[in-house]
Nucleic acid binder design. Structure first.
Length: 489
RNA sequence: GGCGCAUUCGUCUAGCGGUUAGGACGCCGGCCUCUCACGCCGGUAACACGGGUUCGAUUCCCGUAUGCGCUACCA
């Protein structure tokens, strides 16, 4: 039987990085096994729906390169893939469960249930639904039940959980898990608004969509026995289960807002590459037992093994993500980066630079930043003349002879035919020797004049990229300002 | 509270009875150097605890502790 897995988010907001990892592991497993990856939207909670979030979910998944084989928009033979469009299917199964005695109608109001729980808690008992004392199909007469249902009185349908029954299942990641059914509440399967709960919809859909492996977050581990009861009640074969460890904050609580960004979209906006996020998140809770850290998506697919997923939660460490982003910044093709960078510049209102120029700037500066967009902050002087000059740097390196040398260089540079690194180095070094100075005695003041700052790429590389005209203009401009005592710091 | 799951350097992890417990991020130091970086070299730092099993436990079993999850007409 060919592998079929699904990612089944609720459209209640943005995709969480934990959700991204769940989706990714499903995807990696499917592709590794030559199976199908399905996207299903679980929108049965009408109160938490967030408009357009399905669209956002799909968009961010596409951005990350996690393509689904079946799901909303693309369709597939087991659709529809949105639960609110499958209500008939759930209702049919509810009827089957009621008729077979595995589920029953219940008519209690929320207040009555609340009261029951309080009473049980007061007695120190488990606040489970007490099916023997509440208003339901088991305590009411058949006629009464019929009357209430057909009169349109609100009702829910609950799963009749057997007493004292050990539920044992094997989780691919965790091994054998045993839960006693007496711990399990008579779960609501159909809500009074006519929508199914997660438990029912999930089981029915997984079965009818022929899902072979249920790969989901650890928070679902405690409800897996409920699902198994449902499979058994419906006489269905169980899928295999794999419960993924949680993603954690720095303080080891479940990853949440407040302690940093959790939406994938936030990271995208900050300038993280999708390759970095996918690579990073993939290695949170799993790795191919190798010393390598950098993997492209195909390599992840090729080496992915569910059995090798860790059991313990993993802290989302932004420092390592940053390092990984840097790795991809260094690795990526500069042509592609230049195109991206161009849009960043345009957004910030800069004039258009040639791709060739941008590529050169990127090549010489990317090793100094974490994000592509930071190049602009790091070397704004590559895109506009320096307006201010670093005072500390000036005071440290500008000597009484510096102006004289600068004027000499101005003349020498202006006579150069080939304004390239090696020639600039040669000419500048000659000047230094003539004056009995070291190269760096000249380079620092020169850097100040050309860039206004103390930090930057190699001076001669920088000058070569800026070009002869631009450099001479900047030197001239500096001399004028300096002599008029109009330098701005 | 009950139930479940987990526990190797600060963090991500390798390890599947015998290892000087390895790698990566971070941090610290050095080298390189025109600055800032990159890079290179080196350092720091871990098997939660207590019992077993065994010739031998990080590894297997049982407790304890701690953490997390679930305990909804939310998923």
């Amino acid at each position: 039987m060919s592998v079929r897995v699904r990612f089944a988010p609720s459209p209640t907001g943005y995709l969480h990085v934990g959700g991204l990892r769940t989706a990714l592991y499903n995807y990696l497993f499917a592709k590794n096994q030559n199976g199908k990856f399905i996207l299903r939207i679980e929108d049965t909670d009408r109160t938490r729906l967030v408009e357009n979030s399905t669209q956002g979910l799909i968009e961010i998944l596409n951005w990350a390169g996690i393509k689904y084989d079946e799901g909303p928009v693309v369709g597939g033979e087991y659709g529809p893939y949105v639960q609110s469009e499958r209500l008939d299917i759930y209702n049919n199964h509810i009827k089957i469960l009621i008729n077979s005695g595995h589920a029953y109608y219940a008519f209690d109001t929320p207040e009555e249930i609340e009261q029951m729980r309080k009473m049980l808690q007061a007695k120190g008992l488990n606040p489970k639904y007490d099916r023997r004392t509440m208003k339901n199909q088991l305590t009411l007469s058949e006629d009464e039940v019929q009357r209430r249902v057909s009169s349109g009185e609100p009702y829910v349908v609950r799963l009749l959980v057997p007493d004292d029954h050990k539920i044992i299942f094997t989780d691919i990641i965790r091994g054998e898990v045993i839960v006693d059914s007496s711990e399990i509440d008579d779960q609501v399967l159909l809500k009074s608004d006519g929508y199914p709960t997660y438990h029912l919809a999930n089981v029915v859909d997984d079965y009818s969509m022929k899902i072979t492996h249920v790969i989901r977050g650890e928070e679902w581990l405690p409800s897996t026995p409920k699902h198994i009861l449902l499979y058994q009640a419906l006489g269905w074969e169980l899928p295999k289960f794999a419960h993924l460890p949680l993603l954690l904050n720095k303080d080891r609580t479940k990853l949440s807002k407040r302690q940093g960004d959790v939406a994938v979209e936030d990271y995208r906006k900050k300038g993280y590459f999708k390759e970095a996020i996918v690579n990073f998140v993939a290695l949170l809770g799993w790795n191919p037992s190798s010393d390598r850290e950098i993997y492209d998506i195909q390599e992840l697919i090729d080496s992915f093994k569910l059995e090798k997923v860790n059991k313990g939660g993993a802290v989302f460490d932004i420092e390592k993500l940053n390092w990984m982003n840097f790795q991809y910044l260094m690795k990526k093709d500069t042509k592609e980066l230049a195109i991206q960078f161009k849009t960043i510049l345009i957004d910030k209102g800069y004039p258009e630079f040639s791709n060739d120029y941008l590529e050169k700037v990127i090549k010489t500066h990317r090793e100094r930043v974490t994000f592509l967009h930071q190049i602009l902050d790091f070397c704004p002087y590559m895109f506009q003349k320096p307006e201010k000059f670093d005072k500390e740097y000036f005071e440290k390196y500008w000597k009484d002879y510096s102006l004289e040398i600068l004027k000499e260089l101005q003349i020498k540079y202006s006579k150069m035919d080939d304004f390239v690194h090696d020639n600039l180095h040669k000419v500048t070094l000659e000047t230094a020797s003539e004056k009995g100075l070291k190269l760096k005695d000249i380079i620092h003041p020169l850097r100040l004049v050309i860039t206004g700052r103390s930090a930057g790429a190699g001076m001669f590389e920088t000058m070569e990229i800026l070009g002869k005209n631009e450099c001479l203009t900047r030197i001239q401009h500096f001399i004028e300002s300096y002599e008029k005592n109009k330098l701005v710091f």
